[in-house]
Design a protein around this nucleic acid. Structure first.
Lengths: 229, 229
DNA sequence: CTTATGAATTTTGAATACAAAATACATTCT
DNA sequence: AGAATGTATTTTGTATTCAAAATTCATAAG
């Protein structure tokens, strides 16, 4: 397949590339919460000098993924139960407005897309495929966010989601909670299809609140296992 | 008066200090939207080298106050009508949850404080003191935010408020709108005093939505005067 | 044996130096 | 005259260097 020679040449500053890579490493859990981020190590790892690396760390710090301590360096931000308790109500509120706005702007084609994704997700659920379920779940929420036609809102929501993404393994949904979540998603989709913004907002907010309950339970269950300070 | 020798010695990195100063300059409008931020100029102005300055600019860029263009430098982010249209619904949603949470956590003492501030604000309104009104208005919203006991939420709301603060001169409230705003505030306070979270959420959301309408009108009125691209 | 003390080492903070890209400007050609 | 091209200058991007602070580790005192 011939490459498109008219496509713009990809050129980005190092600090951008670095920020993105580090963000990915942190959000995906490849860098453990609390892990010290030695500038020297990261520099040799990425083959760059300290200047762009430090600039990237400042950005990630502003995003809440990295904690900088003066004269003591950078570390991957810890994800405490408190952080989750704070983040989820905010995410709930943001998803709620996103839902309202989406009802106003979403196209029929997008709704159809969502319905397809939803059915695939239900199939994943019935097959017990947790990974596939999570992936489709994210795609659905991402699509709603996009349909809200508010880039600022989307960016804030993604930033928050990135911060708490590392907790998704803690969740460890019970069978009953999983079933409940699927049910909630069905209702969410119906509200979208009828463009009932108010109802959708309520559903999304509740959905997030329930998610928090699950995470909280999973986290307080193995109290001793959560030694991350 | 003897100085407290046991007080911790104030020591902060330059990039922190720089970020804070620049943030203030931008938010308060001392640096005009769209204004180019030459590294050389800022360095000589603050008497620092480029390294910490650049780190500060990265942070402000992440906050949305500065726009960085590769190989083309930094500029104060422009505040378009679109930005406001995006920001206000988000602020409304955030204030709404803040209100709900505040109803759950606020103390009687804090409610009393709010009532006092509110009455002073009404007095400022009746005296036609727009500056005093704005200041007290901000303090009230700030207090509600604090009463929500959710630092993450407060930080996000402040970040958003900072971005749009520059628009507060555009608003140019009409007498009728001003009266309406005061009325809304009275209702907000009553909801807080009765700890009616749901009602408070609705009121705050409406309050913000109305504010947007005002700003939008002020902005579309002098269409030609808003040449800021 | 435990706890301080202090030097050596490592790591971060900031400034300078060097390289690459963009802008401004003069010159040439049509 | 106007557009285009090439060169000089300025500005940004990155690396390196220097300075200051924190950590480590060895040593000595209690």
């Amino acid at each position: 397949m011939p490459m498109d020679v008219t496509a713009p040449i990809e050129r980005r500053p190092l600090h951008n590339e670095l920020a993105e890579r580090l963000r990915h490493l942190i959000v995906e859990g490849d860098l453990a919460p609390g892990e010290k981020l030695s500038e020297r190590d990261l520099c040799s790892r990425f083959g760059v000098s300290r200047t762009p690396l430090r600039e990237a760390l400042k950005v990630l710090s502003a995003e809440g993924l990295v904690r900088l301590t003066p004269h003591r360096g950078a570390a991957v931000a810890n994800l405490t139960l408190e952080d989750l308790e704070e983040a989820f109500p905010i995410m709930g509120a943001l998803e709620a407005v996103a839902g309202e706005l989406a009802c106003m702007h979403i196209t029929a084609a997008e709704i159809a897309q969502l319905r397809t994704a939803h059915e695939k997700m239900v199939a994943a659920y019935e097959a017990g495929d947790l990974g596939g379920y999570f992936a489709l779940n994210e795609r659905i929420h991402e699509t709603i966010l996009k349909a809200a036609r508010n880039p600022t809102l989307a960016q804030m929501q993604r930033g928050l989601a990135g911060r708490v993404r590392r907790a998704r393994y803690m969740a460890n949904m019970s069978a009953s909670r999983w079933a409940q979540a699927v049910g909630e998603h069905e209702a969410i989709l119906e509200a979208l299809e009828t463009r009932d913004g108010e109802r959708l907002a309520m559903l999304l907010k509740t959905h997030l609140a329930n998610k928090l309950v699950t995470v909280r339970e999973a986290l307080t269950a193995d109290e001793d296992g959560s030694r991350n300070d």
